[in-house]
């Protein structure tokens, strides 16, 4: 369970998160949606301790995040645009993260095979395409079998086959009881993967609940239409 209470964050004069209070259920997949600049990535960065809140508190599995870092052992994070040290080889990057976490990976070989990374292992990261770097990012996030998966626009840059395989993996993880937090602008992905929905607009929670209820209450067939309807109302 992830609990967020009264979270506020300002960058300069811009209020990015404004008194955010949320409970993200354990063992389920939650999609975070919202227009650009609504605070999705900032919220995720707060959960990882990359950004410090101006006010409010966050608890992950009962651990109050106040400079602690051990809780991140249970988190697998896949960033929006994976960028790594250019001269490092893929194999070295994986070994480096293994050393940093001081734990043995569970799914390393399986994921290397799934994303067909065998041929890329001895290549420096600078020569890899954006999609291949994204696959390496997916591997790093998933290989330790963490309890919580935080995925920031994970399929951006992935080819259709890899994207499909990635989503299948996430569905499997969901069935295994993992807590999954996903942001994306592809609404069909949220429909496919998430049970719960958080709609953020200008740093505030506009909706938080079951995805099916959100679609129903907006009298729409698809999530995309329901989200568009709300955003239209907000802009008017």
């Amino acid at each position: 369970m992830i609990t967020i209470q009264g979270l506020r964050k300002k960058f300069g004069s811009l209020q990015v998160l404004n008194d955010l209070t949320l409970q993200i259920p354990a063992g389920q997949a939650t999609g975070i949606v919202g227009p650009n600049g609504s605070g999705k990535t900032t919220l995720i960065k707060h959960l990882l301790g990359l950004v410090k809140p101006d006010a409010g508190c966050i608890e992950v599995n009962g651990v109050h995040l106040n400079g602690s870092y051990e809780y991140r052992r249970h988190i697998g994070y896949m960033p929006q645009m994976a960028q790594y040290p250019e001269n490092m080889k893929v194999r070295e990057l994986i070994d480096f993260i293994i050393q940093m976490r001081e734990e043995e990976p569970v799914f390393e070989e399986e994921l290397i095979a799934l994303f067909e990374l065998e041929k890329e292992m001895q290549k420096p990261l600078r020569v890899l395409s954006g999609g291949t770097k994204q696959k390496a990012g997916a591997l790093l996030a998933l290989m330790f079998d963490p309890r919580i998966l935080i995925l920031d626009e994970p399929t951006a840059g992935l080819d259709p086959r890899s994207s499909y395989q990635f989503k299948q993996w996430i569905k499997r993880e969901k069935d295994r009881g993992k807590t999954i937090l996903l942001t994306t602008h592809i609404m069909s992905e949220i429909e496919e993967l998430a049970d719960h929905l958080i709609l953020l607009v200008e740093g505030q929670v506009r909706y938080h609940g079951r995805q099916s209820d959100f679609i129903k209450s907006n009298e729409e067939q698809r999530l995309e239409g329901a989200v568009a309807k709300i955003l239209q109302e907000v802009s008017v």
Binding site: L48, G49, L50, Y69, E70, Y71, R72, R73, I75, Y77, P79, M81, A82, Q83, Y84, P85, I97, M100, R101, L140
Partner: peptide
């Protein structure tokens, strides 16, 4: 140049 690398490492169980 290390910005993304720092972000990646700070997402691991590692103190600043």
């Amino acid at each position: 140049q290390s910005r993304e690398f720092v972000e990646l490492l700070l997402a691991q169980p590692l103190d600043r």
